[in-house]
């Protein structure tokens, strides 16, 4: 049990305060209206008061019994000095069960609809249509698939050199000579993390406004995301190299760039290639999805047929996408195996 980090007092009080607010909110705004079957009014000042009261309750509980729900969630146990173990546990259970209940209500889970006759009939129709694909559109579908594959390919090709260059200043073991370097490293890492956490689909929306709907917008969206992802993977590889060769090349009087080129790069080439191929594979899948929001290729074609409710055509597209994704996945796995 020694591996568990004991949360500090301030953090647990803060956590409990937030938990109190959250509990009050889901009880007051979700669960009670659902039970009484009343339509919730717009969020107003009364709601804020309830929220603050809930927060205050748990904060007071935390301080008065000298124990916290945060502690319970983080460690699974309660500290010995807690004088209100039963109460704390009850609040813990309340938080868990009311979250599940609120989740059920919020996501409109309805077994009735899932098993309704009408619903099942509709699903049956679509599955039947998907199962009898219309191969008249095969030419159109294949050329759209080729657009998607090349969108992903070009995005990868454009991103690789940029990521390669960015990976070095994004590696801790390269940027350790001065505080300025450590600063650059931290800023770069932060930017990359932010860019990476924005899904490509968001970038696709941005670029489809910027350069217009089509494969170019899709490619740009993938380029941005690929640069951020590959740079991170490349730099992690750079951080994992052994230092011996670096020291040996430094000892010959080599320049810093020479050290990177002759001692660091050779240790990273194969993993870099493997990451790159895998990224292209991922990009083909992402390019398909990006097509839904204006990134061109087979995704765009699929939304068009789906909008027209032409499910036989949608079936054809689904088969082609599945086949290509499966083939690429198998091929890239094979190549990565060889590179190991």
């Amino acid at each position: 049990m020694s591996s568990i980090k004991i949360p500090n007092r301030f953090v647990t009080v803060l956590f409990d305060t937030l938990l109190g607010g959250y509990l009050a909110a889901i009880l007051w705004r979700v669960i009670i209206p659902a039970i009484t079957n009343s339509v919730a009014a717009p969020f107003g000042s009364t709601d804020w008061i309830v929220l603050c009261l809930g927060a205050l309750c748990l904060a007071v509980l935390n301080i008065s019994v000298n124990g916290s729900v945060a502690y319970l969630f983080l460690t699974g146990t309660l500290p010995a000095h807690n004088t209100g173990k039963a109460v704390t546990r009850h609040v813990g259970w309340l938080a868990l069960t009311s979250s599940i209940l609120a989740g059920w209500i919020i996501t409109d889970i309805s077994p009735l609809e899932f098993f309704s006759g009408e619903g099942l009939q509709g699903a049956g129709r679509i599955f039947k249509a998907l199962g009898t694909p219309n191969f008249d559109i095969i030419g159109e579908a294949l050329s759209a698939m080729i657009v998607t594959i090349f969108t992903a390919f070009m995005a990868t090709i454009v991103a690789v050199p940029v990521s390669f260059v960015l990976a070095f200043p994004s590696s801790r073991n390269v940027m350790n000579r001065s505080n300025v370097e450590r600063g650059i490293y931290s800023v770069l890492r932060a930017i990359l993390n932010i860019v990476r956490s924005l899904e490509p689909i968001i970038w696709a929306i941005i670029f489809s406004v910027w350069v217009g709907i089509g494969p170019f917008a899709g490619m740009l969206a993938l380029v941005v995301h690929t640069i951020a992802s590959l740079t991170k993977q490349y730099s992690e590889q750079i951080e994992a190299i052994t230092d011996g060769p670096v020291e040996a090349i430094e000892a010959t009087g080599a320049t810093r760039l020479q050290v990177l080129w002759f001692a660091v790069v050779p240790q990273c080439v194969n993993p870099f290639l493997a990451f790159t191929i895998y990224r292209w594979d991922i990009n083909v899948r992402m390019a398909t999805i990006i097509g839904f929001v204006g990134g061109g290729g087979i995704g765009t074609l699929l939304t068009q047929y789906q909008g027209l409710s032409k499910f036989n055509e949608v079936g054809t597209l689904v088969i082609i996408i599945t086949l290509v994704v499966w083939l690429l996945d198998a091929a890239s796995a094979r190549v990565r195996e060889v590179l190991k």
Partner: peptide, 13 residues
């Protein structure tokens, strides 16, 4: 690579 110390970065790379 023992000769790197006497070479310019570009010609070495």
């Amino acid at each position: 690579y023992g000769a790197l110390g006497g070479m310019s970065t570009t010609s070495a790379i």
